[in-house]
Nucleic acid binder design. Sequence first.
DNA 1: TCATACATCCTGTATATACATGTTGTCAAA
DNA 2: TTTGACAACATGTATATACAGGATGTATGA
Lengths: 238, 238
Amino acid sequence: MRNKFNAIYQDLADKINHHNYPVDSYLPSETQLSELYGTSRETIRKALSELLTNGFIQKIRGKGSIVLNLQRFNFPVSGITSFKELNNSLHMNSTTEVLCLEDQHVPLEKFDYQSSSPLLATYVERLRKTNNEPIVLDHDYILKSVVPEISHKVAADSLYDYFENQLGLTISYATKKITVESPTKEEAQLLELNEHQDVVIVRSQTYLEDTTLFQFTESVHRPDKFSFVDFARRQKIN
Amino acid sequence: MRNKFNAIYQDLADKINHHNYPVDSYLPSETQLSELYGTSRETIRKALSELLTNGFIQKIRGKGSIVLNLQRFNFPVSGITSFKELNNSLHMNSTTEVLCLEDQHVPLEKFDYQSSSPLLATYVERLRKTNNEPIVLDHDYILKSVVPEISHKVAADSLYDYFENQLGLTISYATKKITVESPTKEEAQLLELNEHQDVVIVRSQTYLEDTTLFQFTESVHRPDKFSFVDFARRQKIN
DNA sequence: TCATACATCCTGTATATACATGTTGTCAAA
DNA sequence: TTTGACAACATGTATATACAGGATGTATGA
């Protein structure tokens, strides 16, 4: 928000989402936009470049930037987004139940992670429901070396809000891996699954701005409630 | 490849993959790189910006660009990449078996796609195996309005190679949706699954450079062979 | 009538410059 | 020994300019 081109990106993205710029229509040209926002064409181009990579528009040389019809209304495993943010932004009726909050070592083998020494972490187990149906069971391991203490209140509310707005940590990127596996008995029971029904597991490692690893997460999804929407651009392999 | 910054991106990406620039080390500074490649700093910055969004590096203000340890060795549902390209790049022992090749209308309801008129397409059904194990069953619908004819030879080899190198089409972007569902009897049999075992279904729509929709694909994955690896950067929701 | 040529839009690429701001090490003063 | 000021160097942001090249409509000429 502090940058010009970021502000312009947000403004354009909002206007596209609110259909001020309708699907299949062209945005104003880069020079027109630069006059509209009172800035240079390069700044506009940085904003448009963001819109391009995020699937809002397609640029066509010699013609202009056309608004795409992206239906991104599902659970975005793609980005790094907290459950609370999603809940607010989609106006869903969701709850979070904290099942466990204690110190544990990170089960490194589950995450295919190599480490010479054991990693001490705060373990948080949370069950997420929308409309009283269990959707996701989250196992979070937050490294004590970065965040020494987590209260029950914070775990019940939003970890990300606590990290970013209270502690001033800047979450930067994450690697994720999605697989389909058999649930444990506890998981099957909590998610109210039939026997022999598989679950979708999303395991992720989250890093800060300075490349410090600080969180491991294992999200266990009900298979019938799991949906993952992605936007991808063509990239050749050599 | 034709662009300077793209060539520089490729060169740096290759050097990172071959550990010429080791993980956790810093790349040369932007000014050093601009001298190395005999270009301006802005051009270098475009290349580095690509590396950043693709998870090769993390830029740290005041310090430099650090090489990340990305393990991207799994099936990238993330990008748009053909099975043959993957097979070649990972040196896997894979085969493709064409089960069906005929004209059909696209089953629009499966793809949640609205259209006033039915879409005529070439339907290709292919079974992909690696090491003689069935991995994926692909149902492709290629619109006749864009590609009138597809030979059996092309279907057995590589559709993407045919589209891009023979027909001169430029594939640009795609939307994908991943869900877990029950297989049809035919799918269960072809993928050699036990009964009551779910499959992972990736449904995608692929578009050309000029935003023309030209392909629907439904990939049915064996759940135990399915793995999806992703890299994501933090982006706040408003 | 039809095709060619041109002007005029558009985006794509490349370079140069300036200043802002974060990181680090040095060196002198307290 | 510690602190603080500062220089050197890193990336981040913003602007300006130039030319290349695709898309499109118009005017000219055969």
